[in-house]
Simulated scan of single mutants.
Amino acid sequence: MSASRILIRSRADFKAHRAASCASSEALRALSSYTASTSASQASDSTGLSDANSPDSKPTNFCSAVNDALHIALEQNPRALCFGEDVGFGGVFRCTVGLFDRFGRDRVFNTPLSEQGIVGFGIGAAAMGATPVAEIQFADYIFPAFDQIVNEAAKYRYRSGGDFSCGGLTVRAPYGAVGHGGHYHSQSPEAFFTHVPGIKVVVPSGPKEAKGLLLASIADPDPVVFFEAKMLYRTVVEDVPTGSYTIPLGQARIARSGGDMTLVGWGQQVAVLERAAAMVHEEDGIECEIIDLRTLLPWDRDTVEASVSKTGRLLVSHEAPVTSGFGAEIVAAISRRCFLRLEAPPVRVCGYDTPFPLVFEPLYVPSAQRVADAIRDSCRF
């Protein structure tokens, strides 16, 4: 169901929704004059972002971290745009709250319910020099835009010999289990996009990661598909720097050090790996090293290889189905690089090869217990 049917509860909400919806057509007319008015100094630096970490921080949840990053991006880069279904009054998950009021309808606006149109507009805006941040309401609905992303955005610079680019495009999409989403609101489609040269795929695991990686994605010269675990939006709070900062794309993070087994995950699954690692440490004395991959395309092979060379064991976990999931790519690459140093066959703990169920979601999603059992089996091999 469209968020517009869910969220419009009052006449005031309806008026705000209608006013914001008119902005998409106005933005098309405004875009040429908007980019032309940008100064030469701004044109030489399309990001407007600082890499300096702020010494100040405050407790922030995942949703607010995304919102903060969008505020910073639009404030510091006058060519940045934010648009999508219901974005004008906060979006179904409220990640864009306050943007319309602060930056106006020329820069923050609702779109028709057309994912192909949303991404197509973003490609055109980026090609004209804007820095568009397009929101797909649920990652499950990104498939109508698949052709635009893989055949247009990913190939735009290559097919023009570098004469044209839509590298300023970032596509945000909430993904993964939410507790009651079923097969149309809980999918994890990241592996589809890791097969496509020309784009980057980013999946943060917490609020601090979300803010820094989103700002880095918006600043990146390549199109980025940015997946946000919607279960994390309000379930995780951590200290997040209040200022502008970026986390480099393509660099993994060691979330926990250990010498017995390497666990690799991304997004929401990193927390599951941390719980599993705590279980086997307390009950079996097994020390696991956890790697938060952060970026799937390109992924940090060197960090994973160094860890597996130390531990001799590898487990990869993700919510997407096991067959052709991105875990298979990691296992294949590390098996080749670390073959003579492996103490046990690499393991994948993933979703099952079935449509995402509703009432059986707890059985489908890889749990800490499933991961812990796989760790013990590997260590006994």
Score class of each variant (00 low, 15 high):
residue 90 G to A: 12
residue 90 G to P: 08
residue 92 V to Q: 04
residue 94 R to Q: 11
residue 96 T to V: 08
residue 96 T to R: 06
residue 97 V to T: 15
residue 99 L to R: 11
residue 101 D to Q: 15
residue 103 F to N: 09
residue 104 G to P: 03
residue 104 G to V: 10
residue 105 R to P: 01
residue 105 R to E: 12
residue 106 D to S: 14
residue 108 V to F: 10
residue 108 V to Y: 03
residue 111 T to G: 05
residue 112 P to R: 03
residue 112 P to G: 03
residue 113 L to R: 04
residue 113 L to A: 03
residue 114 S to W: 00
residue 115 E to Y: 06
residue 118 I to A: 07
residue 118 I to S: 01
residue 118 I to F: 09
residue 118 I to Y: 01
residue 120 G to Y: 10
residue 121 F to D: 03
residue 121 F to A: 14
residue 124 G to V: 11
residue 126 A to G: 11
residue 126 A to M: 08
residue 127 A to H: 04
residue 128 M to C: 14
residue 128 M to G: 08
residue 129 G to Y: 03
residue 129 G to V: 09
residue 132 P to Y: 13
residue 134 A to Y: 00
residue 135 E to C: 08
residue 137 Q to W: 02
residue 137 Q to S: 01
residue 138 F to W: 13
residue 138 F to V: 10
residue 140 D to K: 05
residue 141 Y to L: 14
residue 141 Y to C: 06
residue 142 I to Q: 05
residue 142 I to C: 10
residue 143 F to G: 00
residue 144 P to Q: 10
residue 147 D to L: 09
residue 147 D to H: 04
residue 148 Q to C: 04
residue 150 V to K: 00
residue 152 E to I: 13
residue 152 E to H: 15
residue 156 Y to A: 11
residue 158 Y to R: 03
residue 158 Y to K: 10
residue 159 R to N: 01
residue 159 R to C: 03
residue 159 R to S: 08
residue 161 G to T: 05
residue 163 D to R: 14
residue 163 D to E: 14
residue 167 G to K: 11
residue 169 L to C: 14
residue 170 T to R: 04
residue 171 V to C: 05
residue 172 R to S: 03
residue 172 R to H: 01
residue 176 G to Q: 10
residue 176 G to R: 04
residue 177 A to T: 15
residue 177 A to E: 01
residue 178 V to L: 15
residue 180 H to Q: 05
residue 181 G to T: 07
residue 182 G to V: 10
residue 182 G to W: 05
residue 182 G to I: 09
residue 182 G to K: 08
residue 182 G to H: 02
residue 183 H to E: 01
residue 183 H to C: 12
residue 183 H to D: 00
residue 185 H to P: 02
residue 186 S to P: 07
residue 187 Q to D: 14
residue 188 S to K: 00
residue 190 E to V: 14
residue 190 E to I: 02
residue 191 A to W: 07
residue 192 F to Q: 08
residue 193 F to P: 01
residue 193 F to T: 02
residue 194 T to W: 02
residue 195 H to Y: 12
residue 195 H to N: 13
residue 195 H to S: 09
residue 196 V to H: 02
residue 196 V to S: 06
residue 197 P to Q: 12
residue 197 P to E: 12
